[in-house]
Write a protein that binds this DNA or RNA. Structure first.
Lengths: 233, 233
DNA sequence: TCAAAAGTGTTATGAGTACACCCATGG
DNA sequence: CCATGGGTGTACTCATAACACTTTTGA
């Protein structure tokens, strides 16, 4: 016997929920679908899993094709498998959520793939079960970022504490106390203060910080407790 | 166009990591594989996703077939998709972890499916990537149970605080202070004290408690903080 | 000189932890 | 009556949360 008999084979795809932060709002990268059905409508970036690929590898490939980026934070989210989720043919989708530094994103690719960043509050109608995927990704981001140092992935290598704070405020849609926030963040010892300042947002300028990569990798799972009352999920 | 052209179809299966608690140790339900290859070796319970089924439905079906149980706690864990994970033919597996009250398990099914409960420390060699699945399920159980009221799913409807405590001690492999444990658990308001006692383990007897179902469903996501230093993952 | 953002310290409250003795009962 | 497991309270420490003023500097 070389095959499993009498079982149905089906298509397997991956879809990526790609988050970015432009300094003010949290955004999702969407593409206009290139193939029928629903050609031209907005969707998450996805693609079929190839014969020699795991889903993880497929996600990395698709992400690189769309954004030009490698080494991006990418995590398996959930597998969607409703038999009717794709009206053309049964397709199972393994979803991933990705956190990228929006400034590293290569704008030229937008044209090539008809991609666009959307603020979370202005997401267009998406195809299939993509709204559900998006919702789940948001929930997971909020859940996980409340406990783990994750949101750094959305910032440039050098960032300021006010930038970090506004990112958190944006993700949780609530204000944070500057002093408590600073204290908590610094108490994790994940950040290293730099000598130079970012003068983009103020006259005084705010010191840059970098992640202490050794600490970061060791403490990826450290509990942060940045959020006073952690979100549920 | 009625089909996606030039894409490979593949088999899709589900596998269940089934946890049970016998009052003393945490156990996994394993089966002896009924089909080639690896027939007769121990594996997680699984099955192929049928044409009219989502993965969730398939998991429920498989779980009912093996344990006779319905309404069991079942949660999607991770999708394993290495192209070579099954040597016969490429098969993607969506894994689920299940928490069941071991006493509701119908023993007769053990014979029918060659199933057996194994203590976590005495797991036999498993096929394919099932060890990895098992490991991931354990990690997730520990992670999630530290934050959410989850372990109740492993106990009978009526249980005592000492029983609950020994379950936690077993999952986290550490002792807990009885007084602090009791206080924390009761402070969640999830438990309702019953009038009767369990005299199985002591002469004095320990009061039974039941979950307050309304509270439980509303607070499924409540943070428990039963574990002093939450586990990482 | 003033507007705008950055940076910093203290206090009060609540949560977590460590810890030891009495109670009830069946044998 | 005694061995066994069940049940309870307090004090200390530490983490969190609330809160306001000074600094810097470009325009």
């Amino acid at each position: 016997m070389t095959k499993y008999q009498h079982q149905t084979r089906l298509l397997a795809a991956i879809d990526c929920i790609i988050f970015g932060f432009d300094g003010t709002t949290l955004k999702l990268l969407l593409v206009q679908r290139a193939i029928q059905p629903e050609k031209g409508r907005w969707s998450l970036m996805g693609g079929f899993i190839q014969p020699d690929e795991s889903a993880d590898i497929a996600a990395v490939r698709v992400l690189k094709k769309l954004t030009g980026l490698e080494g991006v934070y990418l995590e398996q989210l959930h597998t969607f498998s409703d038999p009717k989720r794709d009206p053309i043919e049964r397709t199972l989708s393994v979803t991933y959520f990705a956190l990228i530094d929006i400034h590293r994103y290569e704008q030229q690719l937008s044209d090539e793939y008809h991609a666009e960043w959307f603020t979370l509050t202005e997401i267009p109608q998406l195809i299939f079960d993509h709204p559900e995927m998006m919702y789940m990704a948001q929930e997971k981001l909020r859940y996980k970022a409340a406990l783990h140092p994750l949101l750094f992935e959305l910032l440039p290598k050098k960032f300021t504490l006010p930038q970090l704070q506004s990112l958190y405020e944006c993700v949780y849609d609530m204000p944070f106390d500057k002093r408590n926030f600073t204290r908590k963040v610094l108490s994790t010892k994940l950040l290293v203060k730099q000598k130079d300042k970012d003068k983009g947002n103020s006259k005084k300028g705010a010191f840059f910080y970098k992640l202490d990569n050794k600490q970061y990798k060791a403490n990826l799972h450290a509990f942060l407790n940045i959020i006073p009352n952690p979100p549920i999920g």
